[in-house]
Design a binder for these strands. Structure first.
Lengths: 235, 235
DNA sequence: GCGACGCTTCGGCGGGTGCCGAACGGTTCG
DNA sequence: CGAACCGTTCGGCACCCGCCGAAGCGTCGC
């Protein structure tokens, strides 16, 4: 009885992502930015009318939020929790479909190197930064920010924990990337690192999507502050 | 192109849980034990033939595993990863449907008090134990097992980290219960605590399901070793 | 061996849902 | 004001999928 009711609720949530088109939308929105209905339709290869209906449903469910500007409809993930839901699920996907080995050679090479995942760094860059922070003891075992790490963020990035707004958001957590299949830093610290990197112009967004590119300053900085020697390979 | 392919893969995974009957099965299986096809059919209120098909699909997907014994078909979640997937998703359900307030008065009162969630303690008991371990500093902020906690597990439970098999399973992680809406201890430590509690006869399974009941010994032990004063309310 | 039992297969029904094209309304820009 | 553009609504199509009952198969128990 109530068993079945709980099942129905769970099924309802899963059903949101159980459609290829809606799932594609959600993955595209994982960069945390707002996309127009038309862009999403094109990327997902469906007619605008089809996209419109799906977006209605995503918004109605609370998973997405929208703002209308003129003749445009901008849609984004509603909040961090929504992003975490997508991430969680995507993290459980079987390893890889058929890694063609050419992945790095495609037009999205920049994306493979670095991108944002909702509000933190992902891709090879995100993994590299995370690995370096782990190696230097800034992050510890279960993805907690160490005292040393807090100090580093404060002095080098000007974004230490003391400057963060009070909230219950975890300071650090692991986000499993669905392409790199490696954990990388998410949570408040992840978001602040990403923001600081952008502020300091160590990285810059390219194109309209989630891709980011390491700048020349960034290459130097990553070497100096994180001991990443081969940072230019990420640029 | 590849955007859409990733979306399709994600949708396929979500579709497994997007059916009320399959979702109900998965929630029932969260206790980590094997149920027969008939039991699952009855609990989910569907015909045996319907259940059969769903179980085929769950097994084929790798989410569940089965063993046939005589005329019975025993089905269980395939592994910890499968359980984590269900937990993750269920943890994102909106707070509560319409908490009737009578929850504790139903026939499943024992279940409300304590149960196992795949391989660790959940329910009010699980939350209480977790809270006590947090209060005593056995678990720290981001759900990592402290040195003190490791010592405690070793001396009191006879199940310290040194005795664990080497694996990449996280020592401790939070599992968000879908009824209590409170995090409780999962991961290797959670599993060992549950096992030790059973071994020490502090808890005992009741019925065929996931419900566990605190024994008289357990009430005393929880008071002595975790400072849980009102443990009899959980018995 | 015969019935009871657990499960499965099959056929068929019904409902839900994703998809599109065409027509329409609103906004922007010339 | 008119054309281009973005998005939505609507109707209709097709398909998928969940569900059941009936029949069948293997196992268990008397």
């Amino acid at each position: 009885m109530t068993d079945r009711a709980q099942g129905a609720r769970l099924a309802g949530l899963a059903a949101l992502l159980a459609d290829p088109t809606r799932a594609t939308f959600c993955l595209l929105l994982l960069d945390g930015r707002a996309w127009t209905a038309g862009e999403l339709a094109r990327r997902a290869a469906v007619a605008p009318s089809t996209a419109s209906g799906h977006l209605d449903r995503l918004v109605a469910s609370g998973l997405c939020a929208q703002e209308r500007q003129g003749r445009h409809r901008y849609v984004r993930l509603a909040d961090r929790r929504a992003a975490a839901l997508i991430e969680d699920l995507a993290g459980h996907l079987p390893p890889a479909p058929a890694a063609t080995g050419l992945r790095a050679a495609t037009a999205s090479a920049a994306l493979a190197r670095g991108r944002t995942c909702y509000d933190h760094l992902a891709g090879r860059l995100g993994v590299a930064v995370t690995d370096a922070m782990l190696a230097r003891g800034y992050i510890e075992g279960g993805f907690t920010l160490s005292t040393k790490g807090a100090e580093w963020m404060d002095t080098v990035l000007g974004a230490g924990p003391d400057s963060w707004p009070r909230s219950r958001r975890p300071a650090a957590r692991a986000c499993l990337d669905w392409t790199e299949r490696r954990p990388h830093l998410a949570g408040r610290a992840g978001a602040e690192v990403c923001r600081a990197f952008l502020d300091l112009a160590w990285i810059r967004r390219v194109g309209t999507g989630r891709a980011v590119r390491l700048t020349a300053d960034g290459v130097t900085a990553l070497g100096a502050h994180l001991g990443i020697e081969d940072a230019d390979a990420l640029a």
